[in-house]
Write a protein that binds this DNA or RNA. Structure first.
Lengths: 223, 223
DNA sequence: TACCAGACTTGATTCAGGTCAAGGTGATGG
DNA sequence: CCATCACCTTGACCTGAATCAAGTCTGGTA
């Protein structure tokens, strides 16, 4: 989680080779897990390509997806000694891994990085606050609307009243587990939005918001 | 949010007077709000006495309490330019206020403070992750059980199999808004726990967990 | 000691979303 | 070009928690 932590931003006046020294690249195949919830936390990660999902599990298998991460996003802040979440590639993804020890050397060398990390954690905290409100207090319709709007805030849409094309790379199961709903409910609500001409569904992964501002209104619970 | 950030821990070898210089004490009366959601964020706060609740609101008044904070807890990390949450005293509370500018002077003077703040944000992130699972995937029974266990993790209980006395200083409304339930549901479930001899209710604010380990089991969804 | 107001509990009923059960759809491979 | 499989949609029904509606308890006041 954490958008565009071009980690370099805080050290761009310095030696990038040092950064490279402390990190290693890795590729994770579709569906492969690379962080195990509860496992001892040794590394931070930066997503450099593709997408990743973060989740927590209950013993009986119920799953809550706590976030999706993509290029530039930072993973591992929500971890002290052990990871508070699991992570898995959504499609194939590439990552940059920073062992904690190396990270510490980096923050010592570039103190502003520490500040950058805190900023990132703060941004993430604010997002989570909103997500708690979604999960605790919003209706299914509001949740799906919020999800769609969230997705298009990722892109910098030019005009909020014009249609926006969205790409939903994650299966319905993941959307459901992200929103605290079932796949059936997600599916039904997307169909309802289609019937109401709020969206059009070109294909499973490709949706157009026909009236983004109306969807925003629904998302905020102002129907 | 953020437990026992004795902010001084990271600068205890230094001049405490500097810290005092950058902060001011304040007292907030019961029910009084001191952080307005969405308002420009100028300060960090440390709770020095009493309790505080943090929340976000939907336009129609639905409320999600995102956390309770008490002595030593740190507020304001989930804020960049504007606060992502509102805050209100639960009973009368005392706070230490650190304007951002002063905070910056402090982190410049005591670099380890920056690290401390990130640590705090991380801890908070991990907690929120768990809370998202609660709100998205747990049943009402599991939520109330989790809440009770959370409350007694605050104290350092000596023996998990022995009864634990708890004090719930917040009204049922707050518990409900924290757990994403209604007050009626919270009340019914507490009554059910009482009937099942899992807890005893001495008074509204004073509850004893008779079988903490069974309540833990319920909390984890392993009934 | 009785009264009152606010907070909590309990009960009856409703309903949003879950569960269960068929179908559809579209990408892949034979 | 069809079969297969995984994923998605749709429908019928059910249920957990919300809503609506009385009570009840508590602590403060006089």
């Amino acid at each position: 989680m954490g958008r565009r932590l071009s980690i370099c931003n805080s050290i761009d006046d310095c030696d990038l080779a040092v950064l490279a020294n402390e990190s290693s690249r890795m590729t994770v195949a579709d569906g492969r897990s690379f962080i195990e919830e509860g496992a001892p936390a040794h590394d931070f990660f930066v997503v450099t390509g593709g997408r990743v999902k973060l989740f927590t599990l209950l013993p009986d298998g119920r799953r809550q997806i706590t976030g999706f991460a993509e290029g530039g996003d930072f993973l591992g802040l929500a971890a002290s000694t052990s990871y508070a979440f699991g992570a898995e590639a959504l499609g194939s993804a590439t990552l940059c891994r920073f062992p904690h020890a190396g990270m510490q050397r980096l923050t010592e060398r570039f103190p502003s990085l520490e500040h950058r990390l805190r900023e990132e954690a703060s941004r993430e905290l604010a997002l989570m606050q909103a997500r708690m409100t979604l999960l605790g207090r919003k209706t299914a319709r509001e949740r799906v609307a919020t999800f769609l709007i969230e997705r298009c805030t990722h892109l910098d849409r030019p005009d909020p009243t014009r249609p926006v094309e969205l790409d939903l790379p994650m299966p319905r199961t993941d959307i459901a587990d992200y929103l605290g709903l079932t796949i059936e409910t997600v599916s039904r609500i997307l169909s309802a939005f289609k019937k109401e001409k709020l969206i059009s569904i070109r294909s499973i992964t490709h949706i157009t918001l026909l009236m983004p501002e109306r969807i925003s209104t629904i998302a905020e619970g102002m129907e």
